[in-house]
Design a protein around this nucleic acid. Structure first.
Lengths: 188, 188
DNA sequence: CTTGGCTATGCAACGAGTTGCATAAGAAGA
DNA sequence: TCTTCTTATGCAACTCGTTGCATAGCCAAG
């Protein structure tokens, strides 16, 4: 149930509404966790009823009201407890790899455009991460020295960058393999 | 619903029972997809009722009977159709990254052993993958030239190897960062 | 001969996550 | 004015995935 903990971390970094959280999950937190607004609203409601979060109803001018959530004592304790528990290393679920192995039972060349499309997405993500790193951590405007929270955010971002670079290199390998198979069996 | 497609690929590579599939999902297919036996049995039953698979009941000596599943025409067609459809690039869900960012609100040093444990798991997986590569693809006993299916299995395995190497390097980066924070704030 | 382990299948309940839909207010532009 | 976009929240139904439990046959060890 790591969505709950991701929300706690995000709200500790800065309190906010469900809507704001959903947008953070499309951005920085989204480097390593995704969630839709429905799921976030549902979990926020549950966490509030369990006493992990506090709500403040805020009237806004020129916008609908919003509910600003923030972490209270028991929420902080729940996060701390989770940090002390071991979790099991994640296993990958990679649809594209299923497709690649499946290509042995179809024409491998049909996958080339799909793989190219995925490569583009990862390439865009990489550019986005690198720009964020320059802006927040390694550029001229970034604060030095960084505090602990920023150091940890940076190392997580470096992980995202390493992941995207690795993936792009692998997809190039996949493309080379598919093209090689395509030319050796042009009418499979 | 890629589990269905992963099962089709695996059964096309070799027919087998639910039990056998579950073990494959702990091994080679497990490089990029995981599933428990419950889920596999449930999906097999559904796929059989939909006409994608055929069953044969096999009496075995010195073992319980088993049901051997194999892919029939409509199953092959369903796989082919899926291969022609675009899928959306996967998003990562990395609990450990949540923990790392959460460490800003707790003592960062409590995470060091957890990260070391994860590093060990990934290191073991890497050794396992590399041994498999040597055995099946690059060693002296491996067949040359490889057929298309083997080439594709190999490129997927190379992806797993690249992923584990990248992850290990990143976890070393995380450990260095946590240790640096630990020494600069020894009694946080 | 009983316990534990491996093969083999399955049910029931739950929790996590997705998809479609609905509502509502104000802003911006045709 | 009518439509569309953005902010903001939520319900209902569904699928996917996990956990716990149950059954059953055979084997090997103590």
């Amino acid at each position: 149930m790591a969505l709950e903990h991701a929300i706690l971390v995000s709200l500790l970094e800065k309190p906010g509404s469900g809507y704001e959280l959903a947008r953070r999950f499309e951005r920085s937190i989204g480097y390593f966790w995704t969630a839709t607004h429905q799921q976030i609203y549902r979990v926020l409601k549950r966490m509030e009823s369990e006493g992990l979060l506090a709500v403040r109803e805020l009237s806004q001018q020129s916008r609908p009201d919003k509910k600003e959530y923030s972490v209270v004592g028991p929420g902080r304790a729940a996060l701390s407890q989770w940090l002390h528990e071991p979790i099991q290393p994640e296993s990958i679920r990679h649809d594209l790899a299923v497709k690649i192995r499946g290509a042995a039972f179809d024409d491998p060349s049909v996958l080339i455009r799909e793989v190219e499309r995925h490569r583009q997405v990862h390439s865009d993500r990489l550019a986005h991460y690198v720009a964020g790193e320059l802006r927040d951590f390694t550029g001229p405007a970034s604060p030095t020295p960084l505090d602990a929270g920023q150091e940890l955010q940076h190392v997580v971002l470096r992980g995202g960058i390493a992941y995207e670079r690795m993936t792009i290199a692998w997809l190039d390998d996949v493309l080379a393999t598919l093209r090689r198979l395509g030319t050796s069996h042009p009418h499979a």
